[in-house]
Simulated scan of single mutants.
Amino acid sequence: MIDENKIFSNLEYIEAMNQHGASPNLDEYWNEIVNMLSEDLKKTKEFFNKCTEHQIWYMAGYFEDISYNFKSDEFIKILEELEKKYPNIDIKQDIQWAKDAIEE
């Protein structure tokens, strides 16, 4: 199950820590987000479609890990749709890494 509030809360915490120059171990927050977004492809797509442009940009670093878990071309299509939906953010490299993760 995707707990949207938990994901958004984790993202806000990670972003706040990064903005203030803190470098705490954020693996717990990262893994929680990746695990939730790796459970159900349809629900992940629905979640991404609810996100703002900034949230998608900020989560782009998670694409590779999620893609590795799904190992699905459908997930790549979802990312490519997001890239078209939000042309002002550069997530091309993140999508390439997600593609590469399928091949690992």
Rank of each mutant, 00 (worst) to 15 (best):
I2H: 09
E4Y: 11
I7P: 03
I7V: 14
I7G: 04
F8L: 15
F8Q: 13
N10R: 05
Y13K: 15
I14W: 00
I14S: 06
A16Y: 12
A16I: 08
A16V: 03
M17W: 00
N18M: 10
H20N: 13
G21V: 00
G21T: 04
A22S: 05
P24Q: 02
P24N: 02
D27K: 10
E28I: 11
E28Y: 14
Y29V: 01
I33T: 14
V34G: 05
V34A: 12
M36Y: 09
M36C: 00
M36N: 01
L37P: 06
L37S: 01
L37Y: 01
E39Y: 08
E39W: 02
D40R: 07
L41W: 03
K42D: 13
K43A: 15
F47N: 01
K50H: 08
C51A: 10
T52F: 03
I56G: 03
I56N: 02
W57F: 12
Y58L: 12
M59R: 00
Y62L: 09
I66A: 02
S67N: 10
F70G: 01
F70K: 07
S72Q: 10
D73N: 15
E74I: 12
F75E: 08
F75H: 05
K77F: 09
I78T: 11
L79W: 05
E81T: 07
L82V: 00
K84F: 04
I89F: 06
I89C: 08
D90Q: 07
D90A: 10
Q93P: 05
Q93M: 07
Q93I: 06
Q96M: 01
W97M: 11
K99D: 02
D100A: 10
